[in-house]
Write a protein that binds this DNA or RNA. Sequence first.
DNA 1: TAATGAAAGTGTACTTGTTACACTTTTTTT
DNA 2: AAAAAAAGTGTAACAAGTACACTTTCATTA
Lengths: 245, 245
Amino acid sequence: MTTRLHPNISVDCVIFGFDFEKLNVILVERVLKDPVTGEEIISDFTLTGNHIYVDEHLEDAAKRVLNDLTGLDHIYLEQFYTSEDPARLKSPKDQLWLSKTGKNPEERVISVCYFSLLNCKETPIRKKDRKVGWYPVSNVTNLGFDHSQILAHALHSLQIKIQNEPIGYEMLPQKFTLSQLQKLYEVVFNVEFDKRNFRKKVAKMKYLIPLDEKQKGVSHKPARYYIFSREVYEKTKTDMLNFSV
Amino acid sequence: MTTRLHPNISVDCVIFGFDFEKLNVILVERVLKDPVTGEEIISDFTLTGNHIYVDEHLEDAAKRVLNDLTGLDHIYLEQFYTSEDPARLKSPKDQLWLSKTGKNPEERVISVCYFSLLNCKETPIRKKDRKVGWYPVSNVTNLGFDHSQILAHALHSLQIKIQNEPIGYEMLPQKFTLSQLQKLYEVVFNVEFDKRNFRKKVAKMKYLIPLDEKQKGVSHKPARYYIFSREVYEKTKTDMLNFSV
DNA sequence: TAATGAAAGTGTACTTGTTACACTTTTTTT
DNA sequence: AAAAAAAGTGTAACAAGTACACTTTCATTA
């Protein structure tokens, strides 16, 4: 295995995180200081991404890059888009960053993009050399490269995915309450649901299994925990061909 | 613009075609004959694809490759997947084909894939040097490279797309009858619908506009033609957040 | 220890959408 | 003029979606 980076191919990961309140995404800060004045020449954010190695598989690269930047491991990643941003070559910040990190700013780069959805609370991020963390999706503006468009695209893909297969299937906390599940749908679609109607709806999802366990230490009536049953889901999923619109 | 092919990046187009009876896909025959014996060393099919040029944009490349092979032009293409097939390197047929067409069979290739859906009848294919044509999707087996998987993936993406926005929006014949539209949904999802219920459903789609024009020369009651109104659709489409499953 | 605050949990009436189902109409062909 | 072929149309029963308010159960605090 060589460690030579491929000049034209990169991967980007859009890692969404749910904290039971809002939808977040992992961003990495790009900071570049003038060695003389100490002034910050670049200071903004990007998604977790980097070039792949010349002999590395795409998904392996995505997992490696994500792990390098965040310490996250064993994350389910879903490929959703491959971007090629001509504008990327035009931003002076991006050009400067590329040359300072050993890449050629003149090279065209295509980026194969993956997304995931995690529970923030259960996935602590290990920060190494670069500043990295969860940021509320609703506050994100002006990412480096073409990452703002990639993020928008990722959110749309997440919405499509969620309405075609049960969220959390690959991606959710071990156990959760129905209010938490409702909140998750609400933040992903940016709407509000009626509690009783929501529960009526999920009651039909036989792969949501109620546990005998309840919340503890909350200063209100403790909620029942549920888990997803992958097994039941696989049985259930037959066809869902409600060609809506 | 150089004409040097990028060794690691290709594009593939999955062009679906509806002929009012079944779903078809454009395939290209790969034939390679032994120069001495004349025996066919390779004889199978692939999707329309090729390597991109080093300084060519992905979507431009997809359109160029498609045009080169089929003569089709001004086709709406939707990117749906980027494949990287390690197995590709292992098929002797594929290796032979690559070396005979000026590529290096040792190089890893990632392929950015696009699909489209056309009306076969309105889109005649110009065959140039290679044998190319419409083939019923249900008969397709054993394509070259990893194209069988790409085709399966494309069909799934088409299904997802169709149930999230009206088919034909970018992709359908100018005018069509309701029976033709029903047949289209039936072949894409491989199911049958009840005629009256189907019509009740599409009656709600305000962007399907009935014309005063009818079929001619058919030996039965002539059907009314409809068109899609993109304008009405854009107004209608608000949000469709029926997080089914 | 009683009162308060906070979220969990529960049912019903109304409206809307989905399903199953069969005959008449309009055209061409023979 | 009759036959063949697909278009076009309505209704009743059932399922799903919507709007809406009170009781329960825990921790906290007075």
